[in-house]
């Protein structure tokens, strides 16, 4: 570590006119409470970048879930509502029905969306509610410190599956994107990840696409993110990214699951 000396900035380059990236203005300055390396931060950032680029800060209402992202409204500088555990899709449905000309999204984890709230999720999708669901699937209950989620992989160790998830007694991980893609009223369902620079670029395009569809009144869109949970997976952030690439995306295949016109 001896040669690790900070190199000063190059004043020729570090000038306002040469900025190619800075934090979106719709992201607040509050430091994120998430653990180091958590995918939530990346997705928050992408979502707010898209809000900035579409210039819809005054036209979008977000719904935060219960789970690690319960405080999403602390970081997103837009009007937001905090829903009861699992009920974000019901809350989002009503906001959109009251204000069809506004943009609405829910931001939910796997426990919230796929366990306690699966009825609300499926029925909102089945009604074709014209809103965006941002689904963070990291295969574990993060906030309550690492219990089994409906999306926990087979044989994966969690605090409530200390010997690994036994699919014979604990069921199989739910592929929510494939499940919702079956419903005729869903319009655009895609699964993305943010575990490297290439995937982050694609993920942002998916979010933008979903909000553009909402603008056109196309109906229910979901962007699922195969996320990580370094703390509860008992991994370093880099190990968790490797796990996403080697294990998670094997079961949860990244890519569009349902696109307009069928595929």
């Amino acid at each position: 570590m001896s040669n690790l000396v900070e190199v000063p900035v190059n004043p020729e380059v570090v000038q306002d006119q040469f900025v190619v990236y800075k934090k979106p203005k719709t992201l607040t300055d509050k430091p994120l409470h998430y653990c180091p390396g958590c995918a939530h931060g990346v997705v928050h950032k992408l979502l707010m970048e898209v809000v900035d680029e579409m210039d819809i800060q005054d036209k979008i209402i977000g719904v935060a879930p219960v789970g690690c992202s319960v405080f999403a409204y602390d970081y997103m500088n837009i009007d937001m509502q905090e829903a009861a555990h699992g009920r974000a899709c019901a809350v989002g449905t009503a906001i959109k029905r009251m204000m069809p000309d506004k943009f609405v999204f829910t931001y939910q984890g796997d426990g919230d969306l796929a366990a306690i709230g699966i009825a609300e999720t499926i029925h909102a999708a089945n009604r074709g509610e014209n809103m965006l669901v941002v689904f963070i699937n990291n295969a574990v209950y993060g906030m309550t410190s690492g219990q089994m989620a409906p999306t926990t992989l087979p044989d994966m160790v969690t605090t409530t599956t200390p010997f690994g998830r036994d699919v014979k007694t604990m069921g199989y991980p739910l592929r929510m994107s494939e499940l919702l893609a079956q419903l005729p009223a869903t319009y655009y369902i895609t699964r993305q990840s943010v575990h490297n620079a290439v995937s982050v670029r694609k993920a942002k395009k998916a979010l933008r696409q979903a909000l553009e569809y909402q603008k056109e009144g196309k109906g229910f869109c979901m962007v699922e993110f195969v996320g990580n949970c370094p703390s509860n997976w008992r991994m370093t952030p880099l190990e968790s990214q490797k796990f996403v690439e080697e294990k998670m995306t094997q079961y949860y295949v990244v890519g569009d699951v349902k696109v307009p016109g069928g595929k």
Binding site: A83, R97, M98, A119, E120
Partner: peptide, 26 residues
């Protein structure tokens, strides 16, 4: 007026929360 038959009472009351949060009479 929007009239929506929800999938359950659990959903109904949470829809009410969301709609009331927009300042509407619900």
């Amino acid at each position: 007026m929007v009239v929506l038959q929800a999938e359950s009472e659990v959903s109904s009351i949470n829809m009410l929360y969301g709609a009331a949060g927009t300042g509407r009479r619900v």
